[in-house]
């Protein structure tokens, strides 16, 4: 929800980043305030996923110039774990399997690292089980998932629900959900979307990265950004997503050409 005086959570300024010396982001500018839901759309290779990984601090992506500040902190100076503790959450497009590490233990250690940052009491095994049982309801997950290894052998939908479960436990300030809708059937999509809606609060913000309108039917964005060639090309409201759905991305190519012609 857009409100006049809400806090500025994230400010990305002229961000350039590359992977293996290949520039991927070419000057991204974005401001996200508390209470808002943003969606970034764009084709494969437009830089959407890269942006999410750069915010979270993936070591393979090098920031070559520009800045990201989060509640006034220079995010780029922080290790990924410190970004997470501060309240940045990245929901992975392809959640990683970690054989042998129990999901329950993983969730507990992660939750406690965030709680510690917030000066909350850390939870012991028993206390944590009570907490996690409550949160499981949000994503309609069975307790059996807790005793398995992290994401190992989970179906696509189960992995995504496990991501939202982590989001529920970590109570982040800014949640970036990278193609959370991909690979989900309509039921799973609705469960995941309902979870995200339920977790959205006036003091937090959400950044959705998606190809498709169908997620945006479930979670209504306040802003829709179109990304191409490593930049945000256009920003609008939810109607922009609908427009993309009907007319496709050809006009984006046209705009890039025009821009190239002008410069």
């Amino acid at each position: 929800m857009i409100r006049e005086n809400s806090e500025l959570l994230i400010e990305i300024t002229d961000l350039h980043a590359s992977v293996e010396d290949q520039p991927i982001l070419n000057g991204v500018n974005l401001k996200i305030k508390a209470g808002e839901i943003h969606a970034i759309m764009g084709r494969n290779g437009s830089g959407k996923s890269t942006l999410s990984k750069v915010i979270a601090g993936h070591p393979a992506y090098k920031v070559t110039s520009g800045s990201i500040s989060f509640q006034g902190i220079n995010l780029l100076e922080l290790e990924p774990e410190d970004r997470a503790r501060q309240g940045i959450f990245l929901g992975f497009q392809y959640p990683i399997e970690i054989p042998g590490v129990s999901n329950l233990e993983f969730l507990r250690v992660a939750t406690n690292s965030r709680r510690k940052q917030l000066s909350h009491e850390e939870l012991d095994t028993f206390e944590f089980e009570d907490v996690v049982r409550e949160k499981l309801k949000i994503v309609q997950m069975d307790e059996a998932f807790l005793n398995r290894s992290v994401n190992e052998g989970f179906s696509g939908g189960e992995k995504k629900r496990n991501e939202i479960l982590q989001m529920a436990l970590l109570e982040p300030m800014v949640s970036i959900l990278d193609e959370t809708d991909s690979g989900l059937d309509i039921d799973a999509l609705q469960i995941v979307a309902a979870g995200v809606n339920k977790l959205a609060k006036a003091e937090t913000a959400t950044l959705l990265i998606t190809h498709y309108q169908r997620l945006l039917n479930e979670i209504t964005p306040d802003f829709v950004h179109v990304m191409a060639a490593g930049k945000i090309l256009k920003t609008g409201n939810k109607d922009l997503a609908l427009e993309l759905e009907t007319s496709g991305y050809e006009w984006v190519d046209q705009e890039i050409k025009n821009e190239a012609g002008n410069s």
């Binding site: 993936h58 393979a60 290790e79 990924p80 959640p95 990683i96 970690i98 993983f106 992660a110 965030r114």
Partner: peptide, 15 residues
């Protein structure tokens, strides 16, 4: 793998 480490780190777990 770097990706496994990053996944755990991105949940606040130290390297």
């Amino acid at each position: 793998s770097e990706d496994q480490l990053f996944y755990l780190q991105s949940r606040g777990i130290g390297f």
